[in-house]
């Protein structure tokens, strides 16, 4: 029998039931013990970092047009900056929210019951992903406002409009970066039946990029573009290769994006030749639009990576048997 084209289509919308799943998952996240622990951890570290940062700022810098942005990035010795805290904690928070998304349903024997309701699997996966992302966005926004507020209290200088714009873009970049790790956790939660294995696998991926990718990128760059002491151009080639390899890591992309967004003085992310600096006013800040353009590839890279990971989880999940 030749199936008519119409027969190959599924009936109805894949979004049926999406919001039911979304709100249930969101409520679960917000009321879970896991969330309490994360909130306390993040809160303490953020407040600590901002307080320490503000102390340094008060002592050292008197006149700075971008005081608010300095609050995000300033560090005082034992404590890292607020941004460093975020890039360390948010991947962990995303993994904590996502590592048992799908295998948890298997282990509680709820998956076949839920999928027997008139919804597609799409709705379940999207609902879970969006709920995780919304929860993280909520934490992030709360933290951000807290830090801005604390900055105001400690420093007493209101931020300008460009500064607020930069801060909001920074928020967006951070959310995209968090989305990547939520995607990783979602994939491992489909791949591994045991929640503990899934959590470990996701954390292993994170550790790999946080600790080892830098070293591996260096080795790869040396292999691809060896340094020749008699050829000055080889040094440039190696630097560029290193940059290309390290940009495969979401950590690098995020670090570069926020560097540009939070520091208006940065004009380029790659190596700059002395000839390119001719006529440039060194030290003068870039306008917001230019900084945004500079961070654009990194931002889109992070968002694309998130979508790619979600698509992978989607394909894996659609093919998975409902039965244990």
């Amino acid at each position: 029998m030749q199936p008519s084209p119409n027969k190959l289509r599924r009936e109805g919308s894949p979004w049926t039931g999406l919001w039911a799943v979304f709100f249930k998952e969101m409520a679960d996240h917000l009321s879970s013990t896991r969330m309490r622990i994360l909130e306390v951890l993040i809160l303490f570290s953020a407040v600590g970092a901002v307080y320490a940062g503000a102390q340094t700022l008060r002592q050292t810098i008197g006149e700075d047009p971008f005081l608010l942005l300095r609050v995000f990035t300033a560090a005082q010795d034992p404590l890292p900056s607020f941004v460093a805290f975020l890039s360390f904690f948010l991947p962990l928070a995303a993994i904590a929210l996502g590592f048992d998304a799908i295998n948890g349903e298997y282990n509680r024997n709820t998956l076949s019951r839920i999928l027997a309701q008139p919804i597609y699997r799409d709705a379940l996966l999207w609902g879970k992903f969006l709920a995780g992302l919304a929860t993280l966005a909520l934490i992030l926004l709360a933290l951000f406002l807290l830090v801005v507020g604390l900055g105001l209290v400690f420093l007493g200088v209101p931020p300008g409009s460009e500064e607020v714009g930069r801060a909001l873009l920074f928020l967006l970049a951070t959310l995209a970066y968090t989305g990547v790790w939520l995607g990783v956790a979602l994939v491992t939660s489909v791949l591994f039946r045991s929640a503990a294995t899934s959590a470990l696998a996701a954390i292993a991926v994170w550790l790999f990029f946080a600790l080892f990718w830098g070293i591996i990128a260096q080795l790869l760059a040396q292999a691809v573009a060896p340094f020749d002491p008699f050829d000055p151009e080889s040094e440039l080639r190696q630097t560029e290769a290193l940059l290309a390899f390290s940009r495969l890591s979401p950590n690098t992309l995020y670090a570069e994006a926020i560097q540009v967004l939070l520091n208006p003085g940065i004009r380029s992310l790659g190596p700059v030749l002395i000839t390119q600096l001719q006529g440039a006013l060194l030290g003068s800040p870039l306008p917001l639009g230019q900084s945004f353009l500079l961070a654009w590839p990194q931002l889109t890279g992070l968002i694309a990576l998130t979508l790619l990971l979600f698509a992978l989880a989607y394909v894996l999940f659609q093919r998975r048997e409902v039965r244990a």
């Binding site: 679960d28 509680r108 024997n109």
Partner: peptide
Amino acid sequence: PTREPLSLKKQVGYLPDSVGFYNE
């Protein structure tokens, strides 16, 4: 069931073996 699952599952109830619920 593979092409029209939504209207089918609206009218068919399924109780799996070892059914699970959200405990909390």
